[in-house]
Amino acid sequence: MKLSVCILLYLCIQTAWCQTSATVNFTLPSIALLDLNSNSSITLAFQSPAQAGSSIVSPTTNTTKWLNFTSAVAPGVTRRITAQVVSGTIPNGVQLKLETATYTGAGSGSLGTVTSPVYLTTTATTFINNIGGAFTGNGTSNGFNLKYSLEIQNYSLLRNTNTSFTIIYTFIDN
């Protein structure tokens, strides 16, 4: 009798059921990476006019630069990209125009809103704003194509000169 009760008890226990758990927590980081393809120097040179009385010839615009970025942001956060002239000055009577093309490439996400054109000075100027989580794709033909050109602002201030300056781009939280 004891044996049969024990076997029955065992069989009952054998039909067991149990729930247990494990937790997964992981954190996606905030990321801000900005790159210029390529970052080699460019030259913009005014040319002398062929005829007396004509204006000097503005340099050919340069469209060799592509701006790539990767942005991962916390909820509610946006970023902007600014440009400014550092380590050098733009010659008097001339202004540097930056035109930013609409986005193209293999990226995705909230790629921001472009302001174009902007004129670059030693003060940081925002030209892409409201960037969220996004990536542009890497290398040329991905991201934002930048067009640089020089415009004559005031003829009376022009002087024969050869100068160089650096433009720095900054990727910053709003």
Binding site: T23, V73, G109, G133
Partner: peptide, 13 residues
């Protein structure tokens, strides 16, 4: 993806 908001995610298995 970087398009997913950067924060801590959790689930219970």
């Amino acid at each position: 993806s970087v398009t997913i908001p950067a924060q801590t995610y959790s689930t219970t298995i």
